[in-house]
Design a protein around this nucleic acid. Structure first.
Length: 600
RNA sequence: GCCCCAGUAGCUCAAUGGAUAGAGCGAAGCUCUCCUAAAGCUUAGGUUGCAGGUUCGAUUCCUGCCUGGGGCACCA
């Protein structure tokens, strides 16, 4: 928030350097002063000193850095808006005059409100692709990690200033889907439950049962083998008929697919996710064949069909690389059917051409990172400039304490089950801690807090790390958790309710306590945290910030009296500070797709 | 064989070239006649996997090794 001050000080430093024959730094790194209670900005002169050393002068770098820092400090004096300037260990520290800056920060937050921290428009369109489970299954906790990461990323880039399109690309075809269709048709037709989640879970059970029927057992008897092979033949036949467009099977497929979509829509609604564009895999399958010929004619792909082979892209060779890196990939099977890569290439082309996307982000688990590197390189060879700005946000997969989740074996933790459990646990917490809360509010608060805990458990771990999902850990409400942050918001709200009317003006011209300064300093950092999180595509940056902000507020809360402040002027200023804190927490939580309750 | 990711306190994780490596959980203790104790405050806990290198400065960058996970053309 203090770019103007930084720039003018930078110019002073540069003029000092050039006047004294010191290498002029073209860009200075400014950081907050890292000591709590001290509020200001700092920069260092090690690089300048090291540059002198390299140019032949005999200098001791740390000592020389300190010398320059001292000189610069003298040259700068005490700029307007600052209270103190010091040179320490090669660093130049400039301490804000807290009353001016505090007022400016708080006024800015309250003026901008929900838009506090929003970045300038970047005139660029981003598409984020996420929330894409396969159909004919139920939504498990791994899908949840994907969805929450994608949504938060979308909110971050949008708030940072990008025009943002949310896209989902559900897999609605393939052998897994046909397997469900096969057993449904054979054994369970019209026996599906009514309730959408029950029905989704029921479909998953069918899949598990079918997989059992179709998988060879170790001690298989000849009769069992015969039976299994007969089943498999039925399934293959069904796949063939489906592929040929058999009307009965197509109808059945659409109907069952819709059940999965209904469940997905309900979950996305719970998560407050609004997908703008749906790309079904089945919709891009046929059109994607067209791009194969184009890639052959552009000499990107090699057609080996005349020799009975597939159509391939030798990526390393086309790029002129000697060492193997991107390897070779098939884009059309020798039977003329497409692959995952083919469809992703066709889809990317559509994103660029039909949707005008400048940068495309894929939230897909990390096992597919080679696939995306290959896809991006092929798009580059194809001539799409946007390919350079494509990004695969890979994330580690979610497993259970007893091992990997496996839909085919049925050992998955379903999102709905965890969400229901979360709500129950919060309800009993409310019963214990806030028994005077009216019954009719409890359910809504419990959902906000329960889902907040779950979301934060996913977001507070860097996306490239695997998560071993432990329900008790994920639904913890103490410490480094979503409810901890929500609770800060609730406490702020509570004070504000009791404060009554809020005056429009406040001066921070009294001696601010370290806890107040710390809190204001963290609030002032929010806009740049938004930019950093968006630039690095890292929800974790915002998750950490929200926790730091809540921590600063909780500490403040215990030490600093607000409603009973010494003077009316201090009371007014602190109420205004709390209003700004509440707003910033709310904005940060909103970016994390976590609700900010008034009570809990 | 090649490539990618991880290795930091007992456990789960932060810290992407800067000042004193920080949180949470767990452990010991303290704080509700006081704005919501889902909180705050003490204390204890570290050779940042190992060995080199670059740098004024390395958890961070480079090289090699060890351990664990993942991936390598007709699955998605």
């Amino acid at each position: 928030m203090f770019e103007i001050e930084q720039k003018s000080i930078e110019r002073l430093i540069q003029s000092y350097c050039s006047e004294n024959a010191i290498p002029v730094p073209n860009e200075l790194q400014w950081n907050p002063i890292p000591f709590s209670g001290d509020w200001g900005i700092s920069t260092s002169f090690f690089q300048v000193a090291a540059q002198e050393a390299r140019s032949g002068k005999k200098v001791n770098v740390p000592a020389r850095a300190q010398e320059i820092a001292e000189g610069a400090a003298d040259h700068i004096g005490i700029p307007k808006g600052f209270s103190r300037v010091e040179a320490v260990k090669g660093y130049l520290n400039l301490f804000f005059s807290s009353s001016d800056f505090s007022k400016r920060v708080i006024d800015q937050v309250l003026e901008d409100g929900n838009d506090f921290g929003r970045g300038e428009s970047k005139n660029e369109r981003v598409m984020v692709e996420y929330a894409q489970p396969n159909t004919h299954h139920s939504f498990h906790i791994g899908h949840y990690r994907n969805s929450i990461l994608g949504e938060v990323l979308a909110r971050l880039v949008e708030f940072a200033g990008f025009e943002t399109i949310r896209a989902s690309y559900p897999g609605d075809l393939g052998l897994g889907v046909i397997t469900v269709l096969w057993i449904y048709e054979k054994r369970y037709k019209n026996q599906e439950p009514e309730e959408i989640h029950e029905r989704g879970q029921w479909l998953l059970n069918l899949y598990v049962e079918a997989t059992n029927m179709l998988t060879a057992k170790d001690d298989e008897t000849p009769e069992e083998k015969e039976q299994r092979e007969a089943y498999d033949a039925e399934r293959r036949e069904m796949y063939r008929k489906w592929d040929a467009g058999d009307p009965y099977l197509r109808e059945l497929w659409l109907e069952t697919r819709e059940w999965s979509m209904e469940e997905l829509h309900d979950i996305l609604e719970m998560m407050d996710i609004n997908v703008d564009v749906w790309f079904f895999e089945s919709d891009v399958d046929e059109p994607s064949k067209a791009i194969v010929e184009e890639l052959i004619s552009k000499d990107i792909a090699d057609d080996e069909r005349p020799e009975g082979g597939p159509v391939i892209v030798r990526i390393d060779e086309k790029l002129g690389l000697k060492k193997e890196k991107y390897r070779t990939n098939v884009i059309l099977r020798n039977d003329g059917t497409t692959l995952y890569l083919t469809k992703d290439l066709a889809l990317a082309k559509d994103k660029f051409e039909k949707f005008g996307v400048d940068r495309s982000i894929y939230v897909v688990d990390v096992r597919q990172s080679l696939h995306f590197q290959q896809a991006f390189k092929i798009l580059e060879l194809w001539g799409f400039e946007q390919a350079k700005k494509c990004f695969h946000l890979g994330y580690g997969f979610v497993s259970l304490p007893e091992g990997a989740m496996s839909a085919r074996r049925g050992n998955v933790v379903l999102f709905k089950v965890v969400a229901d459990e979360a709500i129950q646990r919060v309800l009993s917490e409310i019963e214990e801690k806030n028994p005077e809360m009216p019954q009719n509010e409890r359910r809504d608060v419990a959902q906000q807090v329960g889902l907040g805990a779950l979301a934060y458990a996913m977001l507070s771990v860097d996306n490239n790390k695997d998560i071993i999902f432990d329900i008790d850990e994920a639904l913890s409400f103490d410490g480094h958790t979503g409810p901890y942050i929500q609770n800060a918001h609730v406490r702020a709200s509570s004070i504000l309710r009791k404060a009554g009317e809020i005056s429009g003006e406040a001066e921070f011209d009294y001696a601010l306590l370290p806890h107040e300064i710390e809190l204001i300093e963290i609030i002032s950092r929010f806009p740049q945290v938004v930019q950093q999180a968006a630039k690095e595509y890292r929800p974790l940056v915002m998750a950490n910030y929200a926790f730091d902000l809540a921590t600063a507020f909780h500490s403040f809360y215990h030490v600093v009296p607000v409603l009973k402040a010494e003077t009316d002027a201090m009371r007014t200023a602190r109420i205004r500070l709390i209003t700004a804190t509440k707003q910033t927490i709310a904005n940060a939580l909103r970016l994390l797709a976590i609700r900010a309750p008034e009570v809990m």
